[in-house]
Design a protein around this nucleic acid. Structure first.
Lengths: 242, 242
DNA sequence: ACCTGAACACCGTTCAAGT
DNA sequence: ACCTGAACACCGTTCAAGT
């Protein structure tokens, strides 16, 4: 199959004919805008949102940009760079207040729910975030917010970084899990198949059978909030602090 | 480059010569054992441990097994199947007690530290575990253990599954993060580069600068344990339960 | 400075054919 | 029942060459 409908080789209107100046783009051939860092990243995010991380290739990305795959390598070093940049672009969408609120717990909660929602907006992002260091400028900026909130809560030194890592791991882990489940169209079918399997082997899974989580789609939010409350309880208990 | 030293086409000792029976393999050509589910998985884990997930291909896996890539498809449907099976093989290494101890918190701790250590034994495993449903028999068996411990602690219904998900996300997230940092040979150099960057932009990162975590390799264990204690504190607080 | 073209060394997977 | 061989439609990346 694979009908290639592009072609793009028609020369119907000769560009060197008299009078053609008026219909020609102004200075250089602006039919396709030039490649740039930002355009590459924006398009990568767009393709990742549409087709997922497995389907993203340098060739597809370049095609979408009206360029050749090899041209991308003037702007980025590797495909991994593209993924890192796309991921940081997701963190850039995280909208955190400039000022911190009166309650540090409220700020922690704002960080967690905010991060979760941008990660869910781009279902490929959480898994990526969980598997590479988050060192982009926007990721660091979001870390700064979490660190400040926790520092206000009395955390310091190694306890501060442990607490920050813990809440971040929770958000990324739960978003990744939610994204991977929701991605599959047959979530409900898979869940009831697993549930049936567990009940059929109830001697091996006496507790798990009957507790396998989440069959309805509205449950995800509450599921996340329960875990978050658990963490906030732990954070608020004074023993945990430095 | 790529010197192919195999060849394997020499017929130095003619297999049909008189007396050759004694030197020939017994019944069928047993130079390479037959392909099997277990052999495929064991070899996949071996290659993943050695070269990482990025380098694993059906062709390399097959070569290592003395077979052709296409032969694998009689035993598994896709490469993803191989990864799922390899991941569950890691969960199979998790050695949990048959009986539960007197303290449910102790059991939760055993689950968390045990899972962490098998995941770190196979540095590719945590990232994988964070990005796909854990439905293999050995993963389910480990979930059963965690569920039972938490049920003993008073969790039930949706609170039980939320608590289980929370501790699992934490273990997988922190193991994944630790694995990815340790994998790179230049961890220390990267860390101090980040640290320098943060200090150079201290107006943007006033709290984060100076708190960027973990420069020494022994710190990982303590880092993990602090987060775990935080979770246990949250779990022990009665408000969190059903 | 930015992009193309050709090339290299790979991929996952299907399917008819062999034993 | 199990494996091979040929083939399809792809990959990431390098590098000399063009403008």
């Amino acid at each position: 199959m694979s009908a290639k409908p592009s072609g793009d080789k028609r020369k119907k209107t000769p560009e060197s004919a008299p009078g053609a100046v008026w219909f020609r783009a102004e200075k250089t051939s602006r039919t396709r805008p030039q490649l740039s860092h930002e355009r590459i990243i924006a398009t990568a995010v767009e393709l990742l949102d549409r087709d997922g991380v497995q389907k993203l290739s340098m060739r597809r990305l370049a095609e979408r940009l009206g360029a050749h795959a090899t041209s991308l390598y003037w702007h980025v070093a590797t495909k991994d760079d593209v993924l890192d940049l796309a991921l940081d672009a997701v963190f850039a969408e995280l909208d955190l207040p400039d000022e911190h609120s009166a309650s540090w717990q409220g700020d922690v909660e704002a960080f967690m729910t905010g991060l979760r929602s941008v990660l869910l907006r781009h279902p490929w992002a959480a898994a990526l975030a969980g598997s590479r260091p988050l060192l982009g400028p926007h990721a660091l900026r979001s870390s700064e917010f979490a660190y400040t909130a926790l520092a206000t809560g009395g955390f310091d030194g190694v306890h501060l970084s442990s607490a920050a890592a813990t809440i971040t791991h929770y958000v990324i882990g739960s978003a990744s899990s939610e994204a991977v489940w929701r991605k599959r169209s047959d979530e409900a079918a898979t869940r009831s198949a697993v549930d049936a399997h567990l009940r059929a082997h109830i001697d091996e899974y006496p507790t798990l059978a009957g507790h396998f989580p989440l069959l309805k789609e509205d449950d995800w939010d509450a599921h996340f909030h329960r875990g978050m409350r658990l963490l906030l309880t732990g954070l608020t208990s004074s023993e945990a602090r430095g």
